[in-house]
Structure formats: C-alpha cells, structure tokens
Amino acid sequence: MRRYLLKRLLLAIPTIVGVTVLIFIVMRVLPGDPLAIIFGENTGIYVLTEEQLQASRRSLGLDKPLYAQYFAWMGDVLRGDFGRSFWRPDPVREIIVRRGAISAQIALMAVAISWVVGLPIGILSAVRRNSTLDYVSRFLVTLFMAVPSFWLGLTFILITVIFFTWKPPITVNYLWTDPLKNLQMTIGPAIAMGIGLGAFIARMNRTTLLEVIREDYVRTARAKGLTERVVILRHALKNSLLPVVTVSGLQLAGLLGGSVAVERAFGVPGLGTALVQAITERDWMVIQNLVLLYAVIFVFVNLAIDLAYGWIDPRVRYG
C-alpha cells in the first residue's frame, strides 16, 4: 500500500511538471503579450512610451529569458509563493483562498446534491425495473443529462425572480461569516450543477446495480432469507458504487475549478470567474498558478479515487 502510494506520487510529478511547461509555453507562444494588450498603441487604455514599457516589463520579470522566467516561477511555487497578479495588488494566493473557498463549497454541495438525488433514483429504478416509476425516472434522467447546467441556472433565477421576487445576494459572504447569506449565494449554482450530475449518477448506478443484482452472492443473500432492503442496501449497493465514485471524483475535480458558465449565470465570484478575467487580461501569473492548481487537484482526485476503491471493495489490491 505504502509502495503503491509512493509510486503514484512519483508518477504524478512528471504529469504536473508537464502541465506547467505546457501552460508556460502556450501562453508565450499565443499572440498577445500582456503589456502589448493593455498598453499597446491602438488597443490599450494608457499608451506608454518605449522606455516605460521596458521598465514595466523589467518590473514584472518579463525581460528575462524564458527558461529563467520558468525556473523563477517554479522556485517561487516550491517556496509556497504564487506571485501576484500583474494588474491588481492581490497576491495569487489571496485569490485562490478567497475565491477557491466559494468554488470548492459549491462543488462539494453540488456533488452532495447529486448523490442525494441520484442514488435513490438509481436504486429505485433498478429495483423496480421496467415499472412506470422506472420509465418516468429514466425519462427525467435522460432529459436532465441533456440540460446545460448554466441554462438550468438561468431558469432557476428566472423562476425565483418571477414567482418569488427573490434575487441572489450581490454581496459576498462566507460560510463562517454569514452562513445564511452564504447559502443564498451558493445554493443556486449547487442545485444547477448538482441536478445534471445527479442524473448521470442515477443512470450509472442503475446500470451497475442491475449487473450486481444478478450475481451469485446476491442470490445467496436472498436465499438466506434477508429482507430485500438489506440485500439491496447492504450487499448490492456497495459493489455498485465503484463506477459512481469514479464519476463523482472526476466531476468534483472538474467542479473545484468552478464551472465558469454557471458562476457567470449566477454572478458568483468563484475561481472560474477569476480565471476568465485573468485570461482576458492576459494576467499570466494568475493563469499559470490556477492551471497548476487544477492539475494538482486533478492528479490528487484521481489518486483518491483509486484509494477509495480499496476501501469500498477490499478485493482491490494495489500493486
């Protein structure tokens, strides 16, 4: 187990380094130097002279050769310093902590909602196979898998505005400062994303549960005279959860970065919004570090999924 963990962690290093190199190169290869965009002759807001441009380049460290810039960045990251935004006074770490908290909270709530909604529907649908309930739930599942989350968000806002004359709060509140206001801000995006995910979970769970129910040990459990409830919830469900955990993990990894479009629909200042802003402003330092953050999250969530396998299904051995 420990060896497996070590091996996986070592394997993660080239992937993460690869991502940093890729984003570093991509940003510098694509047209649009940050200073040229903001201070350029025709595009910019302020026009700087050539000397001023050089000076600000130097102050941002953009005058050094590329490899020096890359190693300076990596060195800073290893020291836990994520640099600061090119255009704003905020250190990138601040952005990550402030906005990441909101995105992470929404992501966790969305995944929780998807389980609360998806698992029971999946179980009922599998147990009552080909009943009216099954058909209705399969119809809803297929429908909600097709509904774009950000559109669900827009409809959610529309309904609350029209029928309840209620709007999401404009001010930003954290769970630890004002839980009620915070929930008002986060519940909408969480539901908008959670329902789509839940549909996926329900479908996945139904398929795998149907397979598991056919297995011998389930028949044995029934033959022992256990109630159907215990057979399904204790014996079958646990084994049908593996793919569900995989899917949820990957979804969570995707959501932690904040679903940009849903955040936009609700006007929530999460990581996704920060990223879009950084990209439009060519704020290289912010983009680089956010991408690095995503890559690290992705790699570790994948590792966590694999470790969860062993916990759910003790037959899984790590080699």
Binding site: P14, V19, I23, M27, L30, V276, I279, Y294
Partner: peptide
C-alpha cells in the same frame, strides 16, 4: 501516454478559453 496524461490533467475549458482569447 505521458503526454496524454498532461493533456488530460490540463483543463480543457482553460485551453479553449486561452485559444479563444489569444486568437
């Protein structure tokens, strides 16, 4: 495969956004 690992870990949305803004 290792290169694909990198591409998979690289969020597709971000790549798309970067391309859209730059080009």
């Amino acid at each position: 495969q290792r290169f694909l690992d990198v591409l998979m870990a690289f969020p597709g949305v971000i790549l798309a956004l970067l391309l859209l803004v730059a080009l």
